[in-house]
Amino acid sequence: MTGEREYSAPGDEIETRKPVTVSRYRGITRLNHWVTAFTMIGLILSGMALFHPSLYFLTGLFGGGPTTRWLHPLMGILLVLSFLLLFLQMWRLNLPRREDAEWLANIKEVVKGEEENLPELGKYNAGQKFVFWGMSGLIVVMIVTGVMIWEQYFPGLVSIPVRRVAVAVHALAAVAAVLIFIVHVYAAIWTRGTIRAMTRGTVTGGWAYRHHRKWLRELAGRRKADPAE
């Protein structure tokens, strides 16, 4: 093993040199991500069925209203556990850094796709960090309020006035989570070459150079990890 990692996570490495490909997520992390993603989609669909009368038909996907009612919180628990594992793997590289402010100040260039004049970044940019922390916070809010309104197992946990606030906050947090979810998926598609990081686990050297240059530089400077790492 060679040197401290500042911008990269264990398992990140240059995989091939000609052409350059860089491994970004290990298999276990990708599995973890997709479990989280599909649970989240299930939660959004089942939650939205109860959120608005015009979406109640979505309960049909889960086998009816009562099934949706009991399944939703169970998926919620699964999501929290799965997300927690992701969180533990990713939180350090999502801590804000000085260059994030400059990146944000030039967000216009980012949207135009002209990243040439932006600061070099580590594994995540400020947008990705916003998605990460936003989701983390909202999931905490949703598990706390979700348990408070969980009739089947915690019927009298909180007083009725508190319960009213909890269900309203849960719904608001869910709307915010859906918006972040859309941003997340959109960004992954718009920034071409990103999806493969979560499917195959690797990105091209050009992608890494363009979007996460400090990360690439650190990996390039490291020797291939020895098996002990």
Binding site: I14, G113, Y186, A208, Y209, R210
Partner: peptide, 27 residues
């Protein structure tokens, strides 16, 4: 709509070449 109409953020040949250079240089 934006995804269908707007220009995507594509990696350029220049980016690929620079990455090649960076990795080779480090090597």
């Amino acid at each position: 709509a934006h995804g269908a109409l707007a220009r995507a953020n594509e990696v350029s040949a220049h980016d690929d070449a620079e990455a090649q250079e960076m990795v080779a240089h480090a090597a």
